[in-house]
Design a protein around this nucleic acid. Structure first.
Lengths: 106, 106
DNA sequence: ATTTTGAGAAACCAATTAGTTGCACATATA
DNA sequence: TATATGTGCAACTAATTGGTTTCTCAAAAT
């Protein structure tokens, strides 16, 4: 069962977890407190996020702190890049149209 | 059945379709030729992509041309923005300062 | 006018998913 | 030492998913 980053962020709960631990590491229990679900369900999400290396863990006594592997998020950004080129090209075209309109106005 | 853009791009075939029609509109049959699957399966993917407004269609005789709604892709970029701030901060080596502060907090 | 082609919709199926409950195990705390 | 707490894992379930096959309909081609 190959885990994929796009599949990982497809679930709204997982996206919320990602946002939650982006700035500070948290334990599964602390994370679960923020959702209307059980700790075990959160644990499963964390496992999926860990499998695709979006999240790293740090054991501290009997607690495990989970935090975001921010570098991995860049992969989405990288995929988006091909489309960014397109929408920037469109914007430049619009820019040309607008400047042409301005010239005609004069 | 609420359609969500993140769920839409979770499937690898759908991501490939998006890339395929990003630059030029294509018919379902033409799209299906590029994959090892039936036209009907592609048709289902296109329905999902249409439902979340990632794709628009243009009828031309009995053919239907599908093309990417590039503006919608910006929503992913918008969501990524919160993390972009973090990785840019990390680039400025601010992360070391922050993690030191967190440890002292404990 | 008949046949071919392009396409969506419905019914069905196997696989996967997100969630639950119950368990085991290690680490704190009394 | 006995108990409470934090966690992961396995088994199970209901819902969803991606795919196929079959059907219908409309537009082109013969």
């Amino acid at each position: 069962m190959r885990r994929d980053i796009f599949q990982a962020i497809a679930d709204p709960t997982r996206r919320a977890i990602i946002t939650l631990i982006a700035l500070q590491a948290m334990t599964p229990n602390a994370i679960a407190d923020n959702f209307n679900t059980t700790r075990q369900a959160v644990s499963k999400h964390l496992r999926i996020l860990t499998e695709c290396e979006l999240v790293k863990q740090e054991q501290q006594g009997r607690e495990i702190y989970y935090s975001l592997e921010i570098e991995k998020m860049k992969e989405i950004d990288k995929w988006l890049n091909q489309f960014r080129k397109i929408w920037e090209a469109r914007f430049n075209q619009l820019d040309k149209v607008l400047s042409t309109m301005k010239k005609q106005k004069k």
